Simulated assay, not measured.
Amino acid sequence: MNTFDALSLFSGGLDSILASKLMQSLGHKVLGLHFVSPFFGKPEQVPEWEREYGIPITTIDVGQEFVDLMAAFPPHGFGKVLNPCVDCKILMLRRAKKLLPVYEASYIISGEVLGQRPMSQRADTLNIIRNDADVREVLLRPLSAGLLPVTPMEESGLIDRAKLRSLVGRGRKGQYALAKELGVTKIPTQAGGCRLGERESARRYWPILRTFPKPLAPYFDLANVGRQLWRREADTVTGHWMVMGRDYRDNQKLLKLVSPEQYVFELKSFPGPSAVGVPIPGLNWTDEILAEAAACLASFSPKARMHGDAVEVSIERHGAERIISVRPDRPHGFEDNLTWPQTRAQQKIWERTLAEI
């Protein structure tokens, strides 16, 4: 295995690129750590980043670890949506610290810029992140190092503090100037890279967090695809969740993500969506509920509705298939998931309840 001087938290955003390239320019051998989960990460872009920026990068899957953090409620809370930014950075730094001896690296690089983000990059929050992650002795933030306390790496002479930067605030002029200095010509667009900061994604994830006793990372991969339908009785979610494709591309994604214990619904004789039913441990899908789900699926096929009579739907689980006949206009209890205001209201109740414990 190759060895490195430093491990860099590499998101693919401009700050992570600049932090890594700056330390490379000072003669340090840097390995980028690209963390991925159902909520963030672009592993398919790693080869392009390596070619464009000359930084070796390895992908680190923290999906289940991150889901466990969310389900237990992040100690430092959420941002404006469902984004636990402070705890996210702590999680990544802890994992990076564990990897230091694996690569014989001496320190960790993070591209944080003092004052750039209101929740996670204030001076006090940067200290909390450093202390809670237990990386005081090994963490370097080279883009704002001149405004932060001296690190052990600088004190020992491993890193020349005079060659680090003092970027601050939300402006990008300093970053653009540094990019030019370092020869970085391909500037990534400035956009959020985490789905947890998006309202549409948050309302997809929320019912999973609150319904499943132990949510699994693959559930959230499913939540990123197609329509999210939950069965309700008297305005109460029963826990029966169905994910339905909106088009051929969605259908193909769903069929790649399905696991053996889940139900796969498909129309036999008409074009239409595919759907996946995700069972909660201990909560059965009765024949009646399976029929409701099949009718819901059929109702999204225009040609099945025009047929005007019962249609056949295939239901497959554990490799066994059964065929049932349903009417596309049959009433069913599956509905779209909560709106964002409804989701936010429930989230606030959850936060207040935990604060009182």
Results as ranks from 00 to 15, higher is better:
272 G>T: 06
302 P>L: 03
239 G>I: 13
85 C>M: 04
330 R>G: 09
140 L>H: 05
258 V>W: 02
269 S>K: 08
283 L>C: 09
29 K>R: 15
304 A>P: 12
293 A>Y: 06
44 E>I: 10
307 H>V: 03
208 I>F: 12
9 L>H: 01
23 M>H: 06
158 L>M: 15
188 P>T: 11
94 R>D: 10
125 T>K: 03
164 L>H: 04
183 G>S: 15
59 T>V: 15
142 P>T: 15
82 L>R: 07
251 N>T: 02
263 Y>D: 00
203 R>E: 13
102 V>R: 03
226 G>K: 01
41 G>S: 02
164 L>Y: 04
356 E>H: 11
231 R>C: 08
95 R>Y: 09
234 A>C: 03
326 V>F: 05
75 P>A: 12
202 A>D: 05
336 D>E: 15
125 T>V: 14
202 A>Q: 06
254 L>K: 00
122 R>L: 07
109 I>N: 02
70 M>R: 04
166 S>Y: 03
172 R>P: 03
102 V>I: 11
323 I>Q: 07
69 L>G: 01
250 D>P: 01
216 L>G: 00
140 L>Q: 12
12 G>A: 10
36 V>D: 02
179 A>P: 01
296 C>S: 11
150 V>P: 01
322 R>S: 14
14 L>I: 09
53 Y>W: 14
303 K>M: 05
41 G>Y: 04
272 G>N: 06
225 V>D: 06
356 E>I: 12
84 P>C: 10
119 M>A: 03
34 H>R: 09
316 E>G: 01
123 A>W: 14
216 L>H: 01
217 A>N: 01
261 E>I: 00
23 M>R: 01
150 V>N: 00
160 D>Q: 09
126 L>S: 02
142 P>I: 14
